[in-house]
Amino acid sequence: MKQRLLVMNGQKLVQNEVDGTWKTIKVTKAPGLKAGFYNIYLAKEAETTSHTYEGLIVHVDKDFFYQKSGSEFIKHPSKYFLKLPEVGKNITVQYDNEATQTKETIPAKTRKLSH
């Protein structure tokens, strides 16, 4: 089953593809998310042996949470975490042989001030 997010007007629509058509199954607030489509069905499974991911949390469900790390989406299994992160937060997720650690991060500024 393909699943994507559509973010617009501060709302997040969770959509599933059914018979070639996208159907909205849930609508929630979208704090910290920019408007657009988030194709989370393309998410890569997190490497749980020894890896670190940094980025924005875009979606959380009962089995996984999805993080936009660079230009790709990472799917983290919820079972490794005592507390799931909040949508719209930038965090670093670190795995060490299936032991996990998360830390909220502040994204780097990309604009420079001119005088």
Rank of each mutant, 00 (worst) to 15 (best):
K75C: 07
D19Q: 14
H59D: 07
L13Y: 13
V93F: 02
G10E: 05
H59N: 08
P85I: 10
I106H: 08
Q15A: 03
E98N: 13
G20L: 07
L42P: 01
A30T: 05
T49N: 09
F81H: 11
Q101V: 08
K12F: 01
S50A: 12
L6Q: 09
E104T: 14
N16F: 08
G32T: 05
Q94Y: 07
G32H: 02
G70A: 06
T52L: 02
L56Q: 04
D96T: 11
T52S: 13
E72S: 13
A46D: 02
K44Q: 12
L82Y: 07
T49C: 03
G32F: 03
H76D: 00
K29F: 07
V60F: 01
G10W: 06
K83S: 10
T52N: 04
Y53F: 10
A35C: 04
N9V: 06
H115M: 15
Y80F: 15
N97T: 09
L82T: 12
W22P: 04
A43P: 06
Q15M: 05
V93P: 01
T102A: 02
A46R: 03
Y66W: 03
K29W: 01
I25N: 06
T24R: 03
E17R: 10
H51A: 14
S114G: 13
N39A: 11
I25E: 09
I40M: 03
V27L: 04
I40V: 09
N97D: 12
K112T: 14
Y38E: 02
I106C: 04
K103M: 11
G55F: 05
T52D: 04
G36K: 08
L82D: 12
K29L: 11
G70H: 05
I57R: 01
P31M: 06
Y38F: 12
K34Q: 13
T52W: 01
H51M: 13
K12E: 02
D61E: 06
K109Y: 12
S71C: 05
K75W: 00
Q67D: 00
D61A: 05
I25A: 03
K75S: 09
N39R: 10
L113W: 10
G20R: 07
K112V: 15
K34V: 09
K12G: 00
M1P: 08
E104A: 11
Y80C: 07
Q67H: 01
